[in-house]
């Protein structure tokens, strides 16, 4: 879902760049207080894993492929702020080194996949966690929120394309939502498998805001 240069008009890419800078600045501030010897290397490891996993496009129906977004995966392990930074790091490297996603569109891509996909996805995960306690609730939360993180990013992307005058919303929104509803299933499966494994072998790596906050006071 990396928007290239040319899809977005300045009336969209300028303000989304502004939003992205604001979100990153906020995340940098929030992340400072949660970092410890456990999370510092985890930010490197998660950046590496999500970058590598995003290269592996999996086929879905109709000659189309999808790949992991990884926003919820990063957020569950690192929390929404450090997780969002990881996604922003990956998106920036993909744009500048690999020509994946345009430079003008980088702000919008960060808004869609970091702010909305990671931060927004984490809110859904937290909400489901509070309704459904226990390990089963966690797993349902992980699966559902990772699907929604892709869908929400696709919906935001559709709005940006339509506000740019590239394509009418009533055309692009159903198309983007339809294809990403399927890609989101892949996202949910990969996120579920990876996090189930982490829960089994190193459940202490899962982000827990309360514990961390106490440690630093």
């Amino acid at each position: 879902m990396h928007i290239p240069d040319g899809f977005l008009a300045p009336n969209v890419w300028l303000p989304t760049w502004g939003m992205a800078i604001g979100w990153i600045a906020y995340c940098l501030k929030k992340t400072r207080s949660i970092l410890n010897d456990k999370t510092i290397p985890l930010m490197g490891v998660m950046s590496a894993f999500i970058f590598a996993a995003q290269m592996v496009n999996f086929p879905i129906a109709g000659g189309t492929s999808g790949h992991l977004l990884g926003g919820l995966l990063a957020a569950v392990l690192l929390g929404p702020y450090a997780g969002s930074l990881v996604i922003a790091v990956v998106l920036s490297a993909q744009c500048l080194i690999f020509q994946d996603g345009g430079l003008t569109a980088l702000g919008a891509n960060i808004v869609n996949m970091s702010l909305i996909g990671t931060g927004g996805g984490y809110l859904i995960y937290k909400l489901l966690n509070s309704i459904l306690p226990g390990i089963l609730g966690k797993k349902i939360g992980i699966t559902t929120a990772s699907w929604f993180s892709v869908m929400l990013a696709a919906v935001f992307c559709s709005f940006e394309l339509s506000f740019s005058g590239t394509i009418p919303l009533k055309v692009v929104l159903p198309a983007m939502a339809g294809v990403h509803a399927v890609i989101g299933i892949g996202e949910a499966i990969i996120t579920f498998l990876v996090l189930s494994y982490v829960l089994k072998v190193r459940s202490d790596l899962i982000y827990a805001p309360m514990v961390v906050a106490v440690n630093h006071e």
């Binding site: 894993f49 996993a53 592996v56 492929s65 790949h67 294809v179």
Partner: peptide, 23 residues
């Protein structure tokens, strides 16, 4: 593990357009 994914899996990624490219 991340490097293995990059080395072993990425060359066999689906060449089809992704969701946004398809749309």
């Amino acid at each position: 593990i991340a490097l293995l994914v990059a080395i072993v899996l990425s060359p066999f990624a689906s060449p089809h357009p992704d969701g946004l490219e398809r749309v």
